[in-house]
Amino acid sequence: MKAKQWVLKKQFQGNPKSSDVGIKEISLPNLKDGEVMIECLAISVDPYQRLFVKNAKPGDVMYGEQVAKVIESKNADYPVGAHVTTFAGWTTHAVVPGDKLVKVPEYPPDVPIGLALGLLGMTGLTAYYGLLKVGELKEGETVYVNAAAGAVGTVVGQLAKLKGCKVIGSAGSDDKVKYLKTELGFDEAFNYKTIPDMPTFEQTLKRLAPKGIDVFFENVGGLAFRAVLDQMNVDGRVALCGAISSYNSTDKFTPSIPSIGEPMTMKGLRITGFTGWAYSAKDKNNDGLKEMIKWVQEDKLKYPGHNFKGFENCFKAFLSLFTGDNIGKVLVTI
């Protein structure tokens, strides 16, 4: 069996370029006991993959999760035809040991299998654990989420509304702002690109959250981080999910977050960095996933996204994450 793979040619310097990566074809080995051969159905592209490249070397397969179908098996737990998720990277086929696979549960007939990489996968669970476990959200509180039209942000806003909270989001276009309010039920949203400076940003938050912010779901980083902290209430919580504004920076010692000591100490704020993977591993009964599936079945959660069709478009899809062209989850369907 032949497989096509996207591999790193050289380390990204600043913004990723097409010359940094390439596609190669390999022959897969025969299966050993406990292994399966998978055929990719869809690949997830996510901002965090930019961070993994920093530790990769030329020739490495681009890191990422995919949902796949088992096409050959020497593992009784994963028979031919089973659907699985695995971090096999950007590859059309792969040989994977059983302990690196997660079986996709049976979805209702009208739920697409790609949700295993989005709303019902680590994207949705990152929003779930970050908001409800890290943020310890309580009914009636006010939530602010940036990158609100992104894969995680769209879920954060919907979950907060389900929990009876006021939700404010920021996004990078007027169309995205409209979508957040009319389609996803955000109480308030604004286009951060129309705000000229930090004082105006602070005034915007004061106007939209006159009673202050209780939970800040942080995806971006940058100067606005401090402006949000200044609008937070005493004992506020920050779920630090990401800092996409600095992912393409070539200087890790240039601060992307200004001084935060004063609001943290004076208000007793708690800032917690986290990953969805870590919290999912602690959820032995998959309570988070079960609750998310229930909400999908009850039609309480929408799952906006953009599909790039064709394996050859993986890198194009990846670049779209940093230009703000999409709403919701970005997938490549094979």
Rank of each mutant, 00 (worst) to 15 (best):
P210I: 11
S170K: 11
K57E: 13
W295C: 03
Y107E: 05
G114P: 01
D287H: 12
K294H: 14
Y107A: 07
T123H: 07
N219G: 05
K309A: 08
K309N: 06
D197F: 13
A82S: 15
V152C: 09
K103G: 09
V53Y: 05
V143G: 00
A243G: 13
V167A: 02
L289H: 12
T200Y: 03
V134M: 09
Q5R: 15
K166L: 12
D230Q: 12
M198L: 12
L119E: 02
I168V: 09
L132Q: 02
L269Q: 11
L180N: 00
Q5K: 13
D283V: 09
D187P: 02
A317I: 08
G124D: 02
E136A: 15
V228C: 05
K181I: 14
M232S: 05
L101R: 00
L162C: 04
K163G: 06
R50I: 06
K10W: 08
S173Y: 07
R50W: 04
Y192I: 06
L162D: 01
D299S: 15
Y129C: 07
E141F: 12
K133G: 01
Y107T: 10
P255K: 05
L208I: 09
Y192L: 04
H93P: 00
L229T: 00
T200Q: 10
N285L: 11
T204G: 02
G328F: 08
A281F: 10
P199M: 05
K9V: 13
A189N: 06
V238K: 07
W6R: 00
A76F: 09
P210Y: 05
N313L: 03
G328S: 04
F52L: 15
G64S: 07
S320G: 09
I38M: 08
S249C: 14
N313W: 02
F274L: 10
Y129H: 10
G172E: 04
G324I: 13
M232A: 11
G169H: 05
H306W: 09
D175K: 13
G236T: 01
V36N: 03
D33I: 05
L159M: 06
V238C: 13
G64M: 08
E25K: 00
G89P: 02
G172S: 02
S245T: 15
G157N: 03
L319W: 04
L119W: 04
W6T: 00
L132Y: 02
K267E: 13
N285Q: 14
A56I: 04
M198R: 12
L51M: 13
E65F: 13
T272M: 04
N55W: 09
V80H: 06
A3W: 01
Q158L: 11
G118C: 10
F253V: 11
N233L: 12
P97V: 14
T126D: 03
A147S: 14
R226D: 09
T92I: 14
G81W: 01
I327D: 02
S256K: 01
P109Q: 12
I23F: 02
E106L: 15
A68V: 02
S320M: 07
N191M: 07
K9P: 01
R237K: 15
Q297A: 15
T85V: 15
T123Y: 08
V155K: 02
A116C: 13
F311V: 03
K166W: 09
M37Q: 05
A147P: 01
L240Y: 08
G169P: 03
N326G: 03
G22C: 06
K2P: 01
D230Y: 07
Y303W: 15
G135L: 03
D187N: 12
L162R: 08
A68R: 00
Q11Y: 08
K302M: 15
M232T: 03
K4G: 01
V95D: 04
G34T: 06
